[in-house]
């Protein structure tokens, strides 16, 4: 019986919504249900009965022609994601977000370690017996040792989601049944996310407080940045992991950032990100290796982050008009 209902739901989903349509749909559903019961009473098996009922439905275009309705053209026979697949997608997105959060955490930890080791070396607390050049490069090596597994994690999480590429590209449909489930669960999930966001933001603010506090103790001033970065690493991990489930729900529902229109915007933003971030990395490495400014050149990342965030907000605001 559910099969018949979802069959009709699928046919009517892309048709204009009106009272007339609702009435027609429920009328046809009654008929199909009664026909189904009649077939079952005559000793037909469930699958047989469903097959016959659906084969007797006919062609919706015939009816639409008569009613003077043209079906909306956005349905290019996209695959329908069922409940099981959707739940798998959500849990995979969650797992991937843990991998990405770990990766980002590792990179921030690496930068923190870089600053920490540089400071220690500068004070001659470590690497005393090494030549001056090695003192400069060893902390950088430490950073890269952490960047390697981080990048590996990014790539791995990407390949895990490869199977659901069609969902990421918005080329799918979901049943109204699944839509209802997702819609009913979304509020409690976003509520959880906002609690995590509050914790993350508090950590970020608190990290600045800690930075200022440590800086005021003159001998440890430079280590303040290390502590701040560690705290930010935790905060960013919280942001990434807590956003994964609500984001995957929104992706399935095609709402908020996942509306087909917004996705086009994201392509532009993505393209800009693809240029800006590698440039930032180049500046970072160039300043480090050429001018030996490792202790300060990391600021290029927060600066890029803020500028990029500003650009994104501005772009969205202009496009929204």
């Amino acid at each position: 019986m559910e099969t018949i209902k979802s069959y009709l739901d699928n046919i009517f989903r892309n048709l204009p919504k009106s009272k007339e349509m609702e009435r027609l749909k429920s009328e046809i559903l009654y008929n199909m249900e009664e026909r189904y019961n009649e077939l079952k009473d005559n000793g037909k098996l469930e699958n047989e009965a469903i097959g016959i009922v659906i084969s007797e439905f006919g062609n919706i275009d015939e009816l639409l022609d008569e009613m003077g309705i043209s079906p909306s053209k956005n349905n290019e026979n996209y695959p329908v994601v069922d409940n099981e697949e959707a739940m798998e997608f959500v849990s995979l997105k969650k797992k991937a977000s843990y991998l990405i959060a770990t990766g980002v955490g590792l990179i921030l930890l690496g930068v923190s370690l870089l600053i920490f080791l540089s400071q220690m070396a500068e004070r001659n607390l470590i690497f005393q017996s090494l030549p001056e050049d090695a003192k400069g490069t060893l902390p950088v090596i430490a950073l890269f040792l952490l960047i390697v597994p981080a990048v590996a994690l990014f790539i791995y999480s990407g390949t895990k989601l490869e199977r659901f590429k069609f969902i990421e590209e918005g080329k799918f449909e979901i049943s109204s049944d699944l839509r209802n489930i997702l819609n009913s669960e979304l509020p409690s999930i976003t509520q959880k996310q906002s609690i995590h966001t509050i914790i993350g933001v508090s950590l970020c603010i608190f990290s600045v407080v800690v930075l200022l506090a440590i800086v005021s103790f003159e001998p440890f001033a430079d280590f303040g940045v290390c502590v701040m970065l560690l705290m930010i690493a935790v905060a960013v991990s919280i942001f990434i992991t807590s956003g994964s489930v609500p984001d995957s729900y929104k992706e399935l529902l095609k709402i908020d950032d996942y509306k087909p229109k917004t996705q086009k915007q994201d392509k532009v933003i993505g393209a800009v990100a693809g240029i800006v971030w590698p440039i930032a990395v180049c500046i970072f490495l160039f300043c480090g290796f050429v001018f030996n400014l490792w202790h300060i050149c990391w600021v290029v990342f927060p600066i890029t982050g803020i500028l990029f965030g500003g650009f994104t907000a501005l772009y969205k605001a202009i496009k929204a008009d």
Partner: peptide
């Protein structure tokens, strides 16, 4: 002769 659902309702509409 089995009249399809859509045939039936397009006839009603007409």
């Amino acid at each position: 002769y089995i009249m399809k659902e859509t045939t039936l309702y397009s006839a009603f509409t007409r």
